[in-house]
């Protein structure tokens, strides 16, 4: 698909900004998202190309305004709901419960 992920040659995306002494992860949640990659993959609901395609389908604005591990999180949520492993309602209910607990 001719999505925004296909970035080669596009202008206007700003300068490259390397970070000095960059850590492997920038937040605890990034670690969890990374750590889920292989265990969820091993469940066999999707392959790597379906995973990439799920990221490509997330929408141009969202893609550019979110980070790499947010792309992964979006792919898990999208594919696991599409494959019937989770429901969107189940995810939303659990998110509300966790939000209420930490509030």
């Amino acid at each position: 698909m001719n999505g925004v992920h296909d970035l080669g040659g596009m202008d206007g995306l700003g300068p490259v900004q390397p970070e000095q002494d960059e850590p492997v992860f920038h937040a605890e949640w990034e670690k969890r998202v990374f750590g889920l990659f292989l265990p969820v993959f091993a469940c066999g609901y999707y392959n790597i190309d379906q995973f990439r395609h799920a990221i490509e389908r997330m929408g141009a604005t969202a893609y550019l305004n979110t980070s790499y591990y947010e792309h992964w999180l979006h792919a898990y949520e999208t594919l696991l709901v599409e494959k019937g492993v989770l429901t969107a309602e189940e995810l939303a209910a659990r998110q509300r419960k966790i939000a209420a607990e930490v509030a």
């Binding site: 001719n2 080669g8 040659g9």
Partner: peptide
């Protein structure tokens, strides 16, 4: 090629 589906062919 311009499939609406997944491809690894870069547009450029």
């Amino acid at each position: 090629i311009n499939p609406r589906s997944h491809t690894r062919m870069p547009r450029y």
